[in-house]
Nucleic acid binder design. Structure first.
Length: 564
RNA sequence: GCGCCAGUAGCUCAGCUGGAUAGAGCACCGGAUUUCUAAUCCGGUGGUCGGGGGUUCAAGUCCUCCCUGGCGCGCCA
């Protein structure tokens, strides 16, 4: 805890008789920075003391006044006692931190020794990556970076949907209407898949044929396996191009197929524990006694395994292999039931770590039709974003610096807009996709953050002096400067809260606040042409803000550019 | 029908474990650039926090009922 807050707790504890822990729980931040740095609500004391809260606040203010060191003032404001930090000391403690200008300032090591495994993105092989697949990728990769910044060892897992009856359908389609070279063409494969479904409507017997292909695949039939391998390869090559463009990386591509030989053991174990029963020929686990109406299916009547079986095998494998402290499944909320079942079954199978698994769910993205009326493919969205960014840049060309690589900037701005529009909302909310919202450059957007960063870069480049890490920051007297310092000091808290709740939007909102504070103070806190010591103090403040912005933006998947 | 989730300004969203006059962005209106990026800033219009009841000194936040919307509900993933 920072020493300023600590002093507030101590002083208040002394005069109220309450434990510092108790005060810590109620001590809040005033809604506006003019109202001070800490606020102590006096309502609860009112009962015990039988006095009105404002009177208690008044009395506390008087008692506390003589005992402040790092705090400079205690002021009663209605029922609150508000405390103000000594701004000079505060600025020094924040801006003169040894690593204030270093990479990773504000990161922490609190997660050291702990492993967080994150299952995210996990697209289905042989299907194009459309905008609906994007959320898991964006949220999952961001959580990965959030936890990593807090010192956790992260394991990013792409649990590819590379096994299942959809392959039977695909192969069935290929056999009827496709040819050899289609195996290397994802568009062709997708068309075959679509065609299969159309034909199946007319001719339901195709479903049996498809099921049979998948069964052969599960039995290791050489032809079925060979076809599957080629399809998988083609899809994976395509996914990797996309991940590259999004700067998303995985530690493991252990898809569903990886667990083929590990599933019998899971079913056997469930049977040994007496959890299973046979219902209409299928092996199921009844979960009704545990408050879940729908049973978990481990084996179909034809003996084939299911999603649940593979997820059970995968969870066990992950625990054994990565020894995770937490396992996060970044998967849409539509699959909530599946994960409730999964976690309950793990518990019934006496896996002590079942409680370490969480479904990090997110809302549905709706209305993702392109202008042509089809689903929007991710490339289409990324290209459109880049094009709009480029148009924006050329329309405002006189206001911007010369860029070495216009295309790269346009691409970065486009991706920032897309990532941020997703990350700035709470995960749980559904939303209707709209081009305008997904690709917007003004206001609360990714490019707004980038702009704040680039503006500071401009100051550093042009102000004529060098950043001095030891600048006399006691000269930073303006409220707007103090506000910035205060925000900087809260970065780690934002990271921590985002991690605790698996909610990247908390970091996004924080960065927006910081960027807004920067933009608002920009005119007031001039550097260039000011008296040297003052200029130097402001420059250091901006440099540290830039450092925090850059770190936070990278976590959100946004490139902090020096010029844009 | 049952279950889970959501409902805050015209639109998109914030609102920490209940606490100060419910805040941003977009849109709209009016201003700001000889000076470090106007992808910006400053000001204005705009709110029965879905509805009723309850708990509390205090409810957008907790409980309950209802309304609306989304998703899910055994051999798909």
């Amino acid at each position: 805890m920072n020493p300023f807050r600590q002093e507030a707790l101590n002083v208040l504890s002394r005069h109220t008789g309450l434990d510092p822990e108790k005060i810590d729980a109620v001590l809040e931040r005033p809604p506006k920075s003019e109202l001070g740095d800490f606020a102590f609500p006096c309502f609860q004391l009112a009962k015990e003391l039988k006095k009105a809260p404002p009177q208690i606040a008044e009395e506390l203010a008087e008692k506390v006044a003589g005992e402040l060191e790092l705090l400079t003032e205690a002021r009663a404001l209605g029922p609150y006692l508000n405390l103000f930090v000594n701004r000079e000391e505060f600025a020094r403690s924040v801006l003169h931190a040894p690593n204030a200008l270093a990479d990773g300032f504000g990161n922490s090591s609190e997660g050291e020794g702990k492993v967080i495994a994150i299952d995210f993105s996990s697209p289905n092989i042989a299907k194009p990556f459309h905008v609906g697949h994007l959320r898991s990728t964006i949220i999952g990769s961001t959580l990965y970076r959030i936890f990593a910044s807090l010192g956790y060892e992260c394991v990013g897992i792409n649990h590819l949907g590379d096994w299942g009856t959809q392959f039977g359908k695909m192969v069935c389609g290929l056999k009827h209407w496709g040819e050899e070279k289609d195996l290397e063409d994802l568009d062709a494969l997708n068309a075959l898949y679509v065609r299969y479904h159309e034909e199946e409507e007319k001719n339901p017997e195709l479903a049996d044929e498809a099921r049979d292909w998948f069964r052969r695949q599960e039995e290791g039939d050489p032809e079925a396996i060979d076809l599957w391998k080629k399809i998988r390869e083609t899809s994976l090559d395509y996914f990797k191009v996309i991940y590259e463009r999004l700067s998303v990386r995985f530690d493991h591509y252990t898809g569903e197929s990886f667990f083929n030989d590990k599933m019998d053991a899971v079913v056997d174990r469930a049977e040994e524990l007496g959890l299973t029963s046979v219902s209409d020929g299928a092996v199921v686990i009844d979960l009704e006694p545990h408050g879940i109406d729908t049973p978990a299916l481990l084996r179909k009547a034809d003996g084939a395994t299911l999603y649940m079986t593979r997820d059970l095998a995968a969870a066990g494998y992950r625990q054994k292999t990565y020894k995770f402290d937490q396992l996060l499944y970044v998967v849409g909320t539509a699959q909530s039931l599946h994960f409730r079942q999964l976690f309950k079954v793990l518990e019934l199978m006496e896996e002590s770590w079942a409680e370490d698994c969480s479904h990090v769910n997110f809302g549905l993205v709706q209305g993702m039709s392109s202008r042509k009326g089809n689903v929007i493919y991710l490339e289409e969205l990324l290209d459109e974003a880049r094009n709009r960014a480029r148009d924006y840049m050329s329309a405002n060309v006189d206001k911007r610096p010369e860029l070495e690589d216009e295309e790269a900037v346009a691409e970065a701005v486009g991706i920032a807009a897309i990532f941020f529009s997703d990350l700035s909302k709470q995960r749980i909310k559904d939303y209707n996709f709209s081009w305008e919202r997904a690709i917007s450059f003004e206001g609360d957007t990714g490019p707004y953050l980038m702009n704040a960063h680039a503006r500071i870069a401009g100051i550093i480049r042009k102000c004529g002096i060098e950043v001095d890490p030891e600048a006399d920051v006691s000269l930073l007297q303006e409220p707007s400067a103090h506000n910035l310092v205060s925000l900087v000091s809260r970065y780690t808290e934002a990271l921590r809260e985002a991690a605790r709740t698996y909610e990247p939007s908390i970091l996004a909102a924080y960065l927006l606040d910081l960027a807004r504070a920067l933009h608002s103070s920009y005119k007031e806190l001039r550097v260039k042409g000011e008296e040297e010591k003052l200029a130097s103090a402001r420059l250091l403040l901006f440099a540290v803000v830039k450092n925090i912005l850059a770190g936070g933006m990278k976590i959100l998947g946004i490139r902090p550019l020096e010029k844009m």
